[in-house]
Amino acid sequence: MLEIKNLHVKLEEEDKVILKGVDLTVKAGEVHAIMGPNGSGKSTLSYVLSGRDGYEVTDGSATLDGEELLEMEPEARAAAGLFLAFQYPVEIPGVGNMTFLRTAVNAQRKARGEEEMSAGDFLKVVRAKAKTLKIDADMLKRPVNVGFSGGEKKRNEILQMAMLEPKMCILDETDSGLDVDAMKLVSDGVNALRDAGRAFLVITHYQRLLDHIKPDVVHIMAAGRIIKTGGPELALEVEKNGYADILAEVN
């Protein structure tokens, strides 16, 4: 599904190289986790994949079901099925959460040549999905993420994902800021979306999330590269010993 090859990325504005040859393949139906020290480039990878400005790809490629992502506008990537749950969800004063969701759902449908969702159908679906994430009617009415608590913002990301039904979901530290119960809610939300046609790339610092969302593959990223890949046991090792051993082993 997602195939990243030899991806090199630097900042557009300065001569700072952040990704130094990332190789990563995620197959449909799989859940991959990426762990790694702060500043190793995990969020940068997710931003570059989703098309944020400010980065320059100097080498390599990234494809989604064979389509070159890096050439596409962010909205086209979304319509193609890519979704990023932001590490820091953005507040948009003045734009209602509901309006935002409906605009997004219908824009994607339109881009794919599908029929738009009627206001009534949309309302029904969004209410049901919001309920399972314990997002109340008030949060749906408020401006996007404005005044939401950290955990509410993360749940709102998952609601967007549930509404948009993307095929490639990237979750950037969705577990940070969540209380124990919310972590369970969010994980249930993610697990409910797991199926053979969909894949997940879960960026996290903690094993805790991976107890709920069981990964097939775990990658360790350091200094702009994937330095080690393994099974779920790799996450347990990090949890127990930190990164020192792994970094030493590679060097």
Partner: peptide, 30 residues
């Protein structure tokens, strides 16, 4: 215009122009 918010909207599939209009209307809303 807030470029971060614009990107956020676009990353959800909202085309750039529509995203910009949404934000302009939001700016005028008060």
């Amino acid at each position: 215009i807030d470029e971060t918010a614009l990107f956020y909207l676009r990353s959800r599939g909202v085309p750039e122009r529509m995203a910009q209009s949404l934000m302009v209307l939001a700016f005028l809303a008060e």
